[in-house]
Design a protein around this nucleic acid. Sequence first.
DNA 1: CTGCAAATGCAACTGTGTTGCAAATGCTGG
DNA 2: CCAGCATTTGCAACACAGTTGCATTTGCAG
Lengths: 136, 136
Amino acid sequence: MSATADLLRVAGVKVTPGRVRVLDALRAAPQPLSHADLEARLADADRVTLYRVLDSLVACGLALKAVDARGVFRFSAAGAPRPHDGHVHFRCTGCGGVFCLKAAPPPPPKLPRGFRLAEVELDVRGTCANCAGHAG
Amino acid sequence: MSATADLLRVAGVKVTPGRVRVLDALRAAPQPLSHADLEARLADADRVTLYRVLDSLVACGLALKAVDARGVFRFSAAGAPRPHDGHVHFRCTGCGGVFCLKAAPPPPPKLPRGFRLAEVELDVRGTCANCAGHAG
DNA sequence: CTGCAAATGCAACTGTGTTGCAAATGCTGG
DNA sequence: CCAGCATTTGCAACACAGTTGCATTTGCAG
């Protein structure tokens, strides 16, 4: 019996093939997945069912739902490490590539009263080695 | 001549009734407005034109664009024409508001060989005082 | 005033997410 | 193991946010 099925059982929801496959996909993914990402991975799944499976996983606490910069919902398995927390991204303005730098995340700045911090992201823009070489 | 029209002129975009009205609405609003909010305020405006006006305001730095918790873009008037240099932004994941923090911009991290730095932006996400109070 | 690029308005389209309903399926009690 | 029943699934249709193409209008420079 799969560990994923156990998670569903413990969370108190019915164990269905769809839920197992979706939760497996979320747990295997290195980053939060959009509905479209999941549809690509789970080729034969119904669109609407996928939405409902995701909602049920969020409702029972097994998945987290967030909005990305494009306004699309992204889902991640609860408890999974979030690799982009405190990460430093380098965005190449030439090729559009995104590189994850090893640099230490910056210290969280002081916030005004009442503000709650969730995530800090340092976004560095410039030209990557490849593009800089091509056409300075 | 309205101050809003001057802002547009200085920003280097054509001064049109649509842009003046939209920017006025953004500057008068206490919180970031969605496309739908603006449509309601500017009754006779064309849907698509409104999208394009908003995009042009963002492109010339007069407005800021963010995503709210429902995945909808929200727009707010930018405080100054060029507020983005080495600035620290706080993005509220609840209302989509963007706040400019006074904190000093972080030191630029070390880049891999050949990479060229152009811009550094620290993006802090969380919940603003208003939203934290509402439904903490 | 005139010309041209930019902005507008309209129609149609894509992508994302939701709702209603009938059929299939997991779980529980016998 | 089987039946009953609520939950889930699949399908169709819908709602909303945002985009694209194109012809027309308009701001602004000359």
